Simulated scan of single mutants.
Amino acid sequence: MRGNLQIIDLVKIGNITLPDFPLLLAPMEDVSDPPFRAVCKDTGADLMYTEFISSEGLIRDAIKSRKKLDIFDYERPIGIQIFGGDEESLSMAAKIVDVTNPDLLDINFGCPVKKVALKGAGAGVLKDIDLMVRLTDACVKATNLPVTVKTRLGWDEQTKNIEEVAERLQDVGIKALSIHGRTRCQMYKGEADWTLIAKVKNNPRIHIPIFGNGDIDSPQKALEYKHRYGVDGIMIGRAAIGYPWIFREIKHYVQTGELLPPPTVEERVAVCKKHLRGSVAWKGPIVGINEMRGCYAGYLKGLPNIREYRARLVVLKTPEEVETVLDEIQTAYAGIEMQRAPIELVNYHEKCPL
């Protein structure tokens, strides 16, 4: 406090200004698409990223890679994330991304799955820090956008080199660093170790924002980690799948120390409908309907005896049919007092590699 004026520390990523202790939606393959990002934005995500995009795919003009470049003004600030293990390809991909005008460009040095990491991209680059620096430098020089990086502690227990990585990447010009508190070899096993993330944040040489990632599944843990590790913000991935309200709940708890009640049945149905409509609009009716089938369990978790409704939802073939059943659910459970169900951090490896 200065007099009666409270000083609020804002977080800066290049020319992007975020609120104090921002909450970031992690880039997740097959999850962080525009329909999902839209509901997370509504519930409080301060900065979001696209699914990761192959630099080689962008250069080849692959349809799937190009489709992932779709961003919308209501999402801002929004970052596009790319991955690759070749300097020239990453540089060319960065130039392509630049034209789409996101707010920042993020480089993925964290994806642990074999099809990425064992081909020398994603977390595979953690085996060669000199290469990681060269790849990052090539991107920084290829774009006018702020460049950020998401990575892990190291390749394995013997190579937890994140402190060196942070200094060297900052030296070549990145504007923020997100760190998942596991090595590549851990995948998602065990508990995320935030102690090294704290060491990076507390390094007097580091002046860029440091965001922590891994195992945040409740408002209480978010606030505890904020105080214990001193990070500038938190990146949330798996906890938001099927429960985008995690952002709203964390913000409220950090500000007040009070837990919000869980979302009502009406809120759950409304968000589910918005996600469904966005999915159909962006992907088409067939793919949009099919890919939503894995989302209903999360949105409806905590409702008693919901299995029969879920079984119906996953076989329906038109948006109208799905919305009819969702309306039935809202009517059947009207006025029910929702109980808080624990958020399950699914071990989703190949499905959602970040």
Rank of each mutant, 00 (worst) to 15 (best):
G3M: 10
L18N: 13
F21I: 05
M28Q: 06
V31G: 04
R37H: 04
T50V: 04
R60M: 07
L69V: 02
Y74K: 01
R76N: 09
R76P: 08
D86Q: 05
E87V: 11
S91P: 09
M92F: 03
A94M: 03
D98H: 12
T100C: 06
N101D: 13
C111V: 07
K114P: 03
V116Y: 11
G120R: 04
D128F: 08
R152I: 08
D156W: 12
K160I: 02
E164R: 08
Q170D: 10
K175H: 11
E191C: 02
V200H: 09
N203Q: 09
P204C: 02
H207G: 10
Q220V: 11
P244F: 06
K251W: 03
T256S: 12
L259F: 12
P263C: 00
R268W: 03
L276D: 11
S279G: 13
V280A: 05
V280P: 12
A281H: 02
P285T: 09
I289T: 14
C295D: 11
C295F: 14
A297I: 07
K301C: 06
L303S: 10
P304Y: 01
I306V: 13
E308K: 11
R312W: 00
V314P: 02
E320P: 04
E321F: 00
V322T: 06
T324R: 12
A334Y: 12
A334D: 15
